[in-house]
Design a binder for these strands. Structure first.
Lengths: 93, 93
DNA sequence: CTCATATTTCGATAGATTTAAATCTATAGT
DNA sequence: ACTATAGATTTAAATCTATCGAAATATGAG
């Protein structure tokens, strides 16, 4: 058995989140940076703020991202490496 | 870096294919059976033939499935374990 | 030709993505 | 405290894409 029935929904959610170019780029970028704020992600990947927020919401929702800290109006995000390793086979160095 | 730019498209395709309940169930089922024909998959997962064909096409297209052999009008499918291991972290025993 | 298996086409429906505009939240200045 | 500003999120509407399934079309066996 590849996936336990209990985690089937979670797995679908995670893979659906990863199966979109922008979101995979966000994960990829955050794998290289420990943490980044929204504006930093927007600049690097050339997103509109609202578009990014929608994608971040999905990535938070499925557990692949965490809000690492808030500093003033800045929200910093980081990848949840446990979650990533649980589902994704690619190397995160 | 999580994903090489060159394989970004491929990764999106694979994860998009997995991020749908029916298709994840097909992969899961085929992980337990070496190979199965369309009718066998239809029966076990309760799909219409045409619906299954649509999903199989996507799974073949992204490389997660292979057509293992044809026997008469039967088409047998199997998971491409190399491909699965390249992208998916879950254990395939 | 006929039957069984599988795939493709096409239309309807549902779901996802994007963006502008509005709203929220925290900080700084007066 | 009030206002202004910057960063981020939410809402709402348009657009785009995916999914499903009936019907039509292949393909192979007998």
């Amino acid at each position: 058995m590849l996936i336990e029935p209990s985690s089937h929904k979670e797995a679908v959610k995670v893979y659906k989140a990863l199966g979109e170019p922008s979101r995979l780029s966000i994960i990829n970028l955050l794998c290289q940076h420990k943490e980044l704020s929204c504006t930093e992600i927007e600049q690097r990947l050339d997103f509109k703020g609202s578009t990014l927020s929608h994608h971040l919401k999905q990535l938070l929702d499925c557990g692949l991202l965490d809000l690492s800290r808030k500093e003033g109006t800045y929200h910093f995000y980081e990848v949840n490496k446990d979650m990533l390793k649980r589902y994704v086979a690619l190397t995160v160095e």
